[in-house]
């Protein structure tokens, strides 16, 4: 099933998230990643979510989302030119003898070492899905102790006309 990346500007109000999630999960669709954050406008939050599903159903879901009073705009980025990024925080086992290898990897992947302890390190890496996937595959054998991902955020690469309801 194709993965759709939806981006929404929504009113920053209680209950909005439940309404949006309810609309999607009520149809038996799984939200794979979800990210919500503030925008420059304090009244508006930005949501990005990835939902696998067939095109026709997602088109329908997108229209129904657009109908919600709290939703100012919704775009299925999948049809457009967009970039997406995800931030990953990861704690790996880092005994003395592995440290240099980890440091090298983090450098290769444009990451950062946030903390070093006796036998562990906390790393931060941002990137698209493929990049994070590749890094995780390399770190796996060393022992991943904990892992958190922000979920994908995405933005259109170049602006095109997005309609009147877009503030």
């Amino acid at each position: 099933m194709k993965k759709h990346t939806l981006t929404l500007n929504v009113d920053n109000q209680p209950g909005v998230l439940a309404r949006i999630v309810g609309l999607i999960s009520g149809r038996g669709y799984n939200i794979e990643t979800l990210n919500v954050g503030p925008t420059q406008n304090p009244e508006v939050s930005r949501m990005t979510m990835q939902v696998p599903g067939d095109d026709r159903v997602l088109e329908q879901v997108t229209r129904q989302l657009a109908k919600l009073v709290d939703v100012r705009s919704v775009i299925d980025l999948t049809k457009r030119n967009f970039v997406n990024r995800e931030l990953l925080l990861i704690k790996v086992a880092a005994p003395r003898e592995c440290r240099s290898e980890i440091i090298e990897l983090v450098g290769l992947f444009d990451g950062k070492i946030i903390a070093v302890h006796n036998a562990e390190m906390v790393l931060q890496v941002a990137g698209d899905k493929d990049k994070l996937h590749a890094l995780l595959a390399l770190l796996e054998p060393m022992g991943i102790l904990d892992l958190v991902r922000t979920g994908v955020i995405a933005i259109e690469n170049e602006s095109c006309n997005r309609g009147a309801d877009d503030e």
Binding site: P14, G15, G22, V69
Partner: peptide, 16 residues
């Protein structure tokens, strides 16, 4: 009430 009626109303409010 707002949770229960979310899917069966056009919109609902909990006034805080």
């Amino acid at each position: 009430t707002t949770g229960i009626t979310r899917g069966i109303t056009k919109h609902n409010y909990l006034v805080r």
